[in-house]
């Protein structure tokens, strides 16, 4: 991911800044620029989501995505956050045999990857079991 593309999403990736629609009150994450429920009537404002959620589904990835080879095998999950939105995230610091659907997690700050060995380092969110 090129530097500007990563950089402009730093608030979203570091601090789970999404959006809340002033019209329907729904919280949206990952960020959106039009409320999909209200469309033109929507009034989106930045909203920082709470860092708590629970596991809806998970997989242990053995054949890693490009750039994630050194982390394999790793846990990938869909998390439903307390504020409502769902996101895809790795679950870190966890024995893969111990994870269950419904487990409570907190979103934490971790190293996601790097542009190259001499490129920028990408940081973002992962989940950790509470």
């Amino acid at each position: 991911m090129a530097v500007p593309r990563f950089w402009r999403e730093i608030p979203n990736r570091y601090n789970l800044v999404g959006a809340r629609c002033g019209n329907c009150n729904k919280v949206l994450f990952p960020p959106r620029y039009i409320c999909p429920y209200c469309r033109r009537m929507g009034k989106l404002e930045p909203y920082r989501l709470k860092r708590r959620g629970k596991v809806l589904s998970y997989t242990v990835v053995h054949i890693a995505a490009n750039g994630f080879e050194d982390q394999a095998p790793y846990l990938l999950a869909i998390i439903e956050l307390e504020d409502g939105p769902r996101l895809t995230a790795q679950i870190t610091d966890c024995n893969p045999d111990e994870i269950k659907i419904g487990d409570e997690v907190e979103m934490i700050f971790r190293r996601m990857g790097e542009e190259s060995q001499d490129g920028v380092i990408y940081y973002g969110f992962k989940a950790r079991r509470i």
Binding site: D70, Q71, Q90, T92, D93, I108, F109, R110, R111, M112, I121, Y123, K126
Partner: peptide
């Protein structure tokens, strides 16, 4: 440190 940790991530956890 885990494979996804470095001085920055550790500093962030402590700072938070």
């Amino acid at each position: 440190p885990g494979p996804d940790e470095d001085t920055a991530t550790i500093a962030v956890e402590a700072a938070r």
